[in-house]
Design a protein around this nucleic acid. Sequence first.
DNA 1: AGCGGGATTTTCT
DNA 2: GAAAATCCCGCTT
Length: 192
Amino acid sequence: MIPLTDNFGVLDRSATEAAHRLLGCVLERNIDGHLARVKIVETEAYDQTDVASHSYRGETTRTKTMFGPPGHLYVYFTYGMHYCCNVVTGPEGTGAAVLIRAAEPLEGSDYMARRRMREGVDISNGPAKLCHALGIDMRLAGHDLHDEPLRLIMKPQVAAQSITQTSRVGITKGINILWRFYLTGNPYVSKP
DNA sequence: AGCGGGATTTTCT
DNA sequence: GAAAATCCCGCTT
């Protein structure tokens, strides 16, 4: 049954607002007969006005998903071996997206630990670790997060007082803006 | 606990 | 040709 209101509507906002709202939301991955569920605990915002963003120089083959509708998945391959995933936000056409940097396993942690060949926080305390744990690669590039096998389940907004806001990680440009958000004290945050 | 380098490929200068 | 929205291993304190 189709819900009366599409709760993905909150993603049709600026990347920074959406980055707030995505904290505490759940990613549900169906893979290989397993169900893996994780809670998002760390995010970063990017948009076309931002020198650190892949969308800064406009739409390209690589970044076209970022300029598409909110609620789809922008996946990129980096450092020759890692994948990272972003949720596209709004307004559509502005090249805005939120990097999912870390998440806390809720279900299927044994399966994810096996994929990662690691245990505990090392399962998913980083953007490439999370993608490895959930089996996210270019096959899911542009995927609509309403649909199987990877769904985003929106949750109520987390209280502002439990969110820490800092500079983003791993970039050399745009370090002056505080577009990284995480759940204060959560052990799965990549770099507290 | 902290630093340095290697892996490995896409993208831009 | 070099940097990159990273991770892992090994060496040094």
